[in-house]
Design a protein around this nucleic acid. Structure first.
Length: 247
DNA sequence: CGTTAGCCCTGCTGGC
DNA sequence: TGCCAGCAGGGCTAAC
C-alpha cells in the first residue's frame, strides 16, 4: 500500500528518508496531482485539495509564516518550498516507481489533451444516468475538473447540471467539450481561482474568480439572460446554474 | 460494476 | 457583541 499521509508525524520518517538528498528531475501534473519526479525514479506527489499552498521562499518561514506549515523542503541552493494547509486535507506522499502506472491509470483522460474531443466525451458519458455535473467531478471518468470549473463549463455549454450524463446529444457533448477546454484554459491563463486561500508558488492570488459567471453567485442576474442564478446541491456539492440558459 | 453517503479538517459566515 | 450551527469540498472508504 501507498504511504498516503506523509504529513502525519508517525509516517514522516519514511517519507523524509525517501525524499532527502534527492534531486527533482522533472515537474509534472496528472489531474489535480502535482508530480515531482525524483532521481531515484520514485515520485513526490502532492495534492493541494482545498486549502493547500506551495510557496517558494528564500529562507524557512518563521513566526506567523509557520502557521499551518505541514512540510518544508530545503534545497541546496538555499531556497525552500513550503507546503501550508489550513484544513489539512492536502496530501503528500512518495509514489514508488513500480506503482506509478497503476496509480495514474485510476484517473480518467486529461480534458485538455488534443485527443479529448466531443466524440470522446460522448463515448465516456455512455449510458450513465448520473447527473452530468457528478460525472464531470468523477476523477476516474475525467481528470482534473473541480467544482468551480464544472459549474462554469456547464453554464458556458448551456447544459443543466442535473441532466443525465448519458442523455446528452452528440451536439451537446461537443459544446460541453469546447466549454470545458475554454474554461480550463481561461482559468490557467488567469492563474487560478482565489476564492479563499489559493495562492500560486510566488504567493500571488489568481484572478479567475473575477470571471465567475454562476459559481457562488446565487441571486445575481445571469450575465446572458438576467434571470437570477440558482443554487442547488448535486452529489453533495454546492451547484450554481442559470435556470434560463441551462437546459 | 456503478453509484452514493459519510468522513476528514479548520476557518469563516449567517442567524439569533 | 457573542455564540454556535452550518457550510466549504476532493477524494477515499464503506455500503448498497
Amino acid at each position: 500500500m501507498l504511504d498516503h499521509l506523509a504529513v502525519a508525524p508517525a509516517r514522516a520518517s519514511g517519507f523524509k528518508r525517501q525524499v532527502k538528498g534527492q534531486s527533482i528531475a522533472t515537474v509534472g501534473r496528472r489531474g489535480k496531482y502535482l508530480i515531482f519526479e525524483l532521481d531515484s525514479g520514485n515520485a513526490l506527489v502532492i495534492h493541494l485539495r482545498m486549502t493547500g499552498r506551495l510557496t517558494r521562499c528564500q529562507k524557512p518561514p518563521t513566526g506567523d509564516g509557520r502557521k499551518h506549515l505541514r512540510l518544508l523542503f530545503r534545497f541546496t541552493d538555499g531556497f525552500c518550498l513550503a507546503f501550508h494547509d489550513t484544513r489539512r486535507l492536502g496530501k503528500a506522499f512518495v509514489l514508488p516507481e513500480s506503482e506509478s502506472v497503476a496509480y495514474w491509470e485510476r484517473l480518467g483522460p486529461e480534458p485538455l489533451a488534443p485527443s479529448f474531443t466531443g466524440a470522446r466525451l460522448k463515448r465516456l458519458l455512455g449510458e450513465s444516468q448520473r447527473p452530468v455535473k457528478s460525472f464531470l467531478l468523477d476523477q476516474s471518468r475525467i481528470a482534473g475538473i473541480g467544482n468551480i470549473y464544472a459549474d462554469e463549463s456547464l453554464f458556458l455549454a448551456g447544459i443543466h447540471p442535473l441532466r443525465a450524463a448519458g442523455g446528452l446529444s452528440g451536439e451537446e457533448a461537443g459544446r460541453l467539450n469546447k466549454s470545458i477546454k475554454s474554461i480550463l484554459r481561461s482559468a490557467i491563463a488567469l492563474q487560478g481561482s482565489s476564492i479563499d486561500t489559493y495562492r500560486d508558488s510566488g504567493g500571488n492570488r489568481g484572478r479567475f474568480q473575477d470571471s465567475f459567471r454562476v459559481h457562488r453567485r446565487q441571486g445575481d442576474p445571469c450575465p446572458r439572460c438576467g434571470r437570477p442564478v440558482e443554487k442547488i446541491r448535486v452529489g453533495g456539492r454546492g451547484t450554481y446554474f442559470c435556470p434560463g440558459c441551462q437546459h
